[in-house]
Amino acid sequence: MTSPSSSIDPGPAIPLSQRLAARGLDGLTLLVVPAVLFLLLLFIYPFFYGLFLSFNPKAGGTLANYQRFFSDSFLYGTIATTLWLALPVTVITLLMAIPIAFRVRVMKHQRLLTTILVIPITLGTVLVAQGLLSYLGPQGWFNRTLLTLGLISTPVKLLHNYWGVFLSLVITGFPFTFLLTLSYLSGVDPALEQAGATLGAGPWQRFKHILLPLLLPGLAITFCLSFVQAFSVFPSAVLLGAPAGPTRVISIAAYQAAFEEYDYSMASAVAMIMGVVQLSIVVAVLAARGLLYRGPAGGGKG
């Protein structure tokens, strides 16, 4: 770092360290090196390792894993199963979150509500699954209340099928979506909406022409993050769903390949496919986001 520049350099003799410092590279910048090395070693390297491993199957040619995945309905069907869970959950939680975030934004005691909503996220999917197992069961308080109110005559079956996983995803997903939406919404200057109201716009017009366009880029990001979370559902699909059938999601297929068949090559292939599906939805949403307005959301001059 501190060696002076060599004599071949025709310019004035500025030490290399100074020239590097002018570009932002000095001793202080090196502090970033451990973190970069760590992630290269434990994030980037495993990714490429997995990628290569997936092309070196236990038996067959280079693409044998992928051929097996896309010819076996028990395997390729998991993509549709997972999408069929993740997409409705994401859309529904987002549709619930937007109006409620608008309501809560102007609330005085926001913090109590946000604290309550952060609880299921903190507890995590395993505990939510475990709690729902008794709560939604045929003898649980949920069914019991509906029976007492006379809304149903026999208990609704909500466990070990699609709906168990769906509801657990809503319980952990809604707070996540809501808090993200709220944080984007608080970045929009309320003066813009007030200006709209002064000029005679009704609530729906203000939402449609002022707030929604400002919020859409943030909502696109929220959609991506919530979708990716829901798509990687694992514990609740095993505990609350029917992991052999209707809720055999893609992460279960990857897990079984790795830890039940000990076929790490196949497991890597499934993980890669999982990543590609997630990425393609995210890219599609972000590409659509590129078409949206992305200007300042503040009301200041200039």
């Binding site: 994030f43 790795a258 999982m274």
Partner: peptide
């Protein structure tokens, strides 16, 4: 470098966890 730090937060753990676990094993 910023992208390198963003990716592990955007990719869900189970997706990168399986290749990572393989390497660690």
């Amino acid at each position: 470098v910023m992208l390198l730090f963003l990716l592990p937060l955007l990719v869900p753990p189970i997706t990168f966890g399986i290749p990572l676990a393989t390497v660690l094993y």
